[in-house]
């Protein structure tokens, strides 16, 4: 129990909060990694997932990507890219985006795939163009699945961003590795608590988002 008290004391210490190596800076870096990497993954994954879901072409890519993502060791991808690009923010961003992509892709695709065929047929029968079908029927109905995909992607990135400090990229993991090197267990514990708190905060945000999307989805289906 003593360690927990020390860890919270470490977080509570104002000296650890501000400055270039303070909690706020590292938290900001951690959040920036998460937003940029998930954003990049969304930019590629959503259009690609919609294209596959709409046309039904390249379904094998989804199966392959999600399977590979599960088996791919994140630390391996991170260290490999870091060796190629050198220490800095580039390697972590590239690695995190690669890791986030399969979840986003699968979410976008699954949303379209889950729509019952009669719904699509009905939309076509009403004379909707492919573009109208996608924008007015498929995207709104697929939203809950897409949010689910973005949720797992963000979760994965928030968690993996802790490892980024291993290749010199900063983030909350910085405190963890600093503590590991100096045998300062309370500091490692404090960093872990902060990372866990951030992950849980992310979960809550997405739970709220999913609830809002679910309600809209419900309203749409009953129209």
């Amino acid at each position: 129990m003593n360690y927990f008290v020390e860890a919270f004391a470490w977080i509570a210490d104002p000296a650890h909060r501000t400055g270039p190596d303070g909690i706020w800076t590292r938290l900001g870096q951690h959040l920036a990694y998460t937003l940029i990497a998930t954003g990049a993954a969304a930019l590629i994954g959503i259009p690609l997932g919609y294209w596959i879901g709409h046309t039904g072409r390249g379904k094998g890519l989804i199966v392959g990507a999600t399977g590979a993502a599960r088996a791919l060791p994140t630390l391996g991808v991170l260290t490999l890219i870091a060796l190629f690009t050198g220490v800095g923010v580039g390697a972590p961003l590239a690695a995190l985006s690669v890791l986030a992509l399969p979840s986003v892709l699968a979410g976008a695709y699954a949303g379209l795939e889950a729509i019952p065929a009669p719904t699509i047929d009905a939309a076509r029968a009403q004379g909707m163009s492919e573009w109208q079908l996608l924008s007015r029927v498929e995207i709104p109905l697929g939203l809950p699945h897409l949010i689910g995909g973005l949720r797992s992607a963000t979760l994965q990135v928030v968690a993996t961003a802790t490892l980024v400090a291993y290749v010199g990229g900063g983030g909350l993991g910085r405190f963890l590795f600093l503590g590991l090197k100096t045998q300062d267990y309370p500091q490692m514990l404090a960093a872990s608590f902060l990372a866990v708190a951030l992950a849980i905060a992310g979960e809550i945000c997405f739970a709220v988002l999913a609830r809002i999307a679910g309600r809209r989805h419900h309203a749409l289906s009953n129209r």
């Binding site: 968690a159 802790t162 963890l176 960093a191 872990s192 608590f193 866990v196 992950a199 979960e203």
Partner: peptide, 10 residues
């Protein structure tokens, strides 16, 4: 939802 490395530290 718990990140793996922090869990290993806790």
């Amino acid at each position: 939802a718990l990140p793996s490395l922090p869990l290993l530290v806790v």
